[in-house]
């Protein structure tokens, strides 16, 4: 299972991509596989404030349900509306079209608490 090198990862299986002070958040392919066919995701509201490692949503598959944990803190500026009709994007393209939310990154130092691709790969090996 390959994990893109340009992302940071949390032990709760979320990834984050930082571009221009904005962080895009999603779940990893490992998490998507463990859950199986994802059928529903409860997205955060735009404007909501996420706290690092706090819950911000729920993802449901046919056989399981799991909380979503924010890998970084910040205000939600956009959510992936496409997931409302096609939650399966989280299975088919977890690091791309299956992204969940974008936040205005508050504190860059929070990224230090996350893993790089190699560290995450070791964690899920």
């Amino acid at each position: 299972m390959s994990h893109p090198d340009d992302l940071a990862y949390s032990r709760e299986h979320e990834w984050v991509r930082v571009e221009d002070g904005r962080a895009t958040i999603g779940i990893t392919s490992f998490a998507a596989n463990e859950l199986g066919d994802i059928v529903f995701v409860e997205l955060p509201e735009v404007g909501a404030t996420l706290t690092q490692f706090g819950t911000f949503g729920v993802v449901e598959s046919v056989k399981a349900v799991s909380d979503l944990y924010a890998p970084v803190s910040g205000e939600v500026i956009e959510v992936n509306e496409a997931l409302r009709d096609a939650p399966e994007l989280m299975n088919s393209d977890p690091f791309g079209e299956g992204w969940i939310a974008k936040v205005e990154l508050g504190d860059r130092s929070e990224l230090d608490a996350l893993l790089d691709a190699a560290g995450y790969a070791a964690e899920t090996a």
């Binding site: 066919d37 059928v39 529903f40 046919v62 096609a86």
Partner: peptide, 10 residues
């Protein structure tokens, strides 16, 4: 046969 439960829930 085996039914598509993911489609049913989505």
């Amino acid at each position: 046969g085996r039914l598509d439960e993911a489609a049913a829930a989505r």
